[in-house]
Design a binder for these strands. Sequence first.
DNA 1: CAGTTATATAATAATCTAATTATATAACTG
DNA 2: CAGTTATATAATTAGATTATTATATAACTG
Lengths: 112, 112
Amino acid sequence: MPDLDTAFSALADPTRRAILAKLAEGEATVMELAQPFAMSQPAISRHLKVLEGAGLIVRRVEGTRRPCRLAPDAIRQIDQWLDMMRAALAKNYDRLDSVLAAMQSEKEQENE
Amino acid sequence: MPDLDTAFSALADPTRRAILAKLAEGEATVMELAQPFAMSQPAISRHLKVLEGAGLIVRRVEGTRRPCRLAPDAIRQIDQWLDMMRAALAKNYDRLDSVLAAMQSEKEQENE
DNA sequence: CAGTTATATAATAATCTAATTATATAACTG
DNA sequence: CAGTTATATAATTAGATTATTATATAACTG
């Protein structure tokens, strides 16, 4: 799954997650997104390109601005992958539970 | 949130996700995990170290083996972060909905 | 049209990552 | 104990990533 590669590695950067958090409040232009960071505008442009490449944001053209907003695609993909993990964890947890239960009942037999 | 950095970047690698998928079937030793990959054992050891550092797996010592299994911690953290995104997406979706509804009712007024 | 604003791209340097091979360690096995 | 097995660590190298500055582009503004 090459898309998950891109999505997860896009999310691995704190600046990019901060950008997404900002976009969670709604659409924003590149300058608006760049403003809170102690980082050059080209650096932010590059981060946005990465986020766009990962399907995490989309952009429209509005005169000289490129307002960005969140896109649901990549998040959905990640969710699907995590579902698999959650299921596995639940299963393993149940297994652990039954092991513990078995140990407990052995112990109880000892004590009889 | 430095832990999310580590967790997401651990998940950005397809070999590591494959290892996690294997571990979803249950505990496995380093050799068992390395076997399906066309990759040296030290490379796998390093990947496991990354996964452990991210809190995605835990290891026990069993003689000369180090069986690994999934740990729920990092997944939980990622879930929390995604919850925030999901909420924002839902909110933005609602907002879009209401914009569309407004556009629709303007149009209807035109047609009267 | 000249100047400014919003954004993108390119060149470059610094840092990080992931793989390999070689080697170390420590536990099993005969 | 000697040899083997399971795993880890180190040195090295190749490639990717991130930031910077300088510059390009294209749309607004007076």
